[in-house]
Design a protein around this nucleic acid. Structure first.
Length: 399
DNA sequence: CATTGTTTAGTGATTT
DNA sequence: AAATCACTAAACAATG
């Protein structure tokens, strides 16, 4: 498995027909070399600030950038610009601005990214939220339940450790950090993510996209495009073994009837979905600042060469030092966990610390949102490192 | 009250 | 087929 990508490679990379799909206004990055970025990022160079709303529903009608059908660095194919096949590296998807496609990162990975981006070893929950929403447009429009998942993940996942707030520290909730041991592994590349979550299209945007998600037989998405394209899509799916697109648990709740308690007294808790905060003003301020002339490649290189590490005791970015001490001193364990140790036990849970996360987070050298109301230093962006003026929209993520 | 954090439980997909 | 993983949903406690 996972070979399918390769197998299909040449036969499918040339699916120009796919460009007919105007489902997703992608901002296909123009760089053609070094595509190791894991999430798309803004067009660099040029002044194209990736217009704030790029990738937002507002722009969905746009024709696709006739992006390069990348023969790409990866010999992976890119079925749809903007839609990536499950498990494939989304070369061309700019997750930062593409509100339609759920980033192929697990929540744990996202958390890690946020943590690494923060340059501190510990960050607050709200910072995590913030970072995610700032960097993945998708989550700005998604049902806020993802936050629940984030919390759940933090609590449950062994690689996250909670660091209680100091008595005198104002603010709510504690901090979270990555268990250094896992960071070690991450850096050693000892872990591979087992799988990636299926591609999901933001249900909140579905309608606006004209994407029709009828419950399909097997996790297939019914893209509502012209019949011709649809046919091709079908053929394509067949060729790919059926599931080119993962499906949004489409009818969450509805047909996907969940479990027991139908309780959930109507208005009891939160105004369950249904109304997605599409494009509120906040995003305008929000995305824009993320732009920056950034030398991603260089960044990546440095990341790879170890300049950017978690806490392995290696050269962390300067700013990280202070608070970091809590965690560092970590050359604790040999990379290969001694068999039978508790270490070993936890290790198998470490599904997300792979180079992918690591590489991906190289990009996170990027702007870091200030922790608004949180006086503390929590997630203060290392101003010095900010690529381009990033003004840290406070309250961008209202909820 | 809202946020944060923990826990339990169910689903579907993938791996072994 | 069983085990595992990632996710989702939700109840509920603690806290600011």
């Amino acid at each position: 498995m996972s070979e399918d990508a390769q197998v299909l490679d040449d036969s499918l990379t040339s699916l120009q027909w796919l460009q007919e799909f105007s489902i997703l206004g992608t901002n296909v990055p123009h760089h053609t070399h070094h595509q190791h970025h894991l999430f798309g990022h803004q067009q660099l160079g040029s002044d194209a600030p990736a217009s704030p709303l790029a990738g937002d529903p507002a722009s969905i009608g746009m024709p696709l950038t006739p992006g390069k059908p990348t023969a790409a660095a990866y010999s992976r194919m890119q079925p749809l610009p903007g839609i990536v096949a499950h498990g494939h590296c989304p070369d061309d998807v700019d997750y930062k601005t593409n509100a339609h496609i759920k980033p192929p990162y697990s929540y744990a990975t996202l958390i890690c990214m946020a943590m690494q981006a923060s340059k501190k070893s510990k960050i607050t929950l709200s910072c995590i939220y913030k970072w995610i929403t700032d960097n993945f447009c998708y989550y700005r429009h998604a049902d806020p339940t993802w936050q629940n998942s984030i919390r759940h993940n933090l609590s449950l996942n062994k690689c996250f450790i909670k660091v209680p707030r100091q008595k005198d520290e104002p603010g709510k909730g504690g901090f979270w950090k990555i268990d250094p041991q896992y960071a070690e592994r991450l850096l050693s590349g000892a872990y591979k993510k087992r799988r990636m979550p299926p591609v999901q299209i933001n249900p909140a945007l579905r309608n606006r996209l004209g994407v029709n998600m009828q419950p399909q037989p097997r996790g297939q998405i019914g893209l509502c495009v012209n019949p011709e394209s649809q046919r091709l899509l079908r053929e394509f799916e067949e060729a790919t073994g059926g599931t080119m697109l993962g499906s949004w648990p489409v009818v969450r709740g509805r047909s996907g009837l969940k479990r027991k308690q139908g309780s959930r007294n109507g208005a009891a808790k939160a105004p369950r979905r249904s109304s997605s905060p599409l494009l509120s003003m906040d995003e305008q301020k929000e995305i824009g600042p993320l732009k920056g002339d950034f030398d991603w490649d260089a960044l990546l290189d440095s990341a790879l060469s170890g300049e950017l590490t978690l806490e392995g005791g290696e050269p962390l970015s300067p700013i990280m030092k202070e608070e970091d001490l809590t965690v560092r001193g970590t050359h604790i364990s040999p990379v290969e966990a001694p068999a039978g140790s508790a270490e070993a036990e936890r290790s198998n849970n470490m599904s997300d610390f792979d180079e992918e996360t690591f590489l991906a987070t190289a990009f996170l050298e990027n702007p870091w949102p200030e922790e608004e109301a949180d006086h503390g230093p929590p997630c203060r962006p290392p101003a010095a490192l900010l690529p381009a003026g990033r003004s840290c929209p406070a309250g961008s993520q209202g909820s």
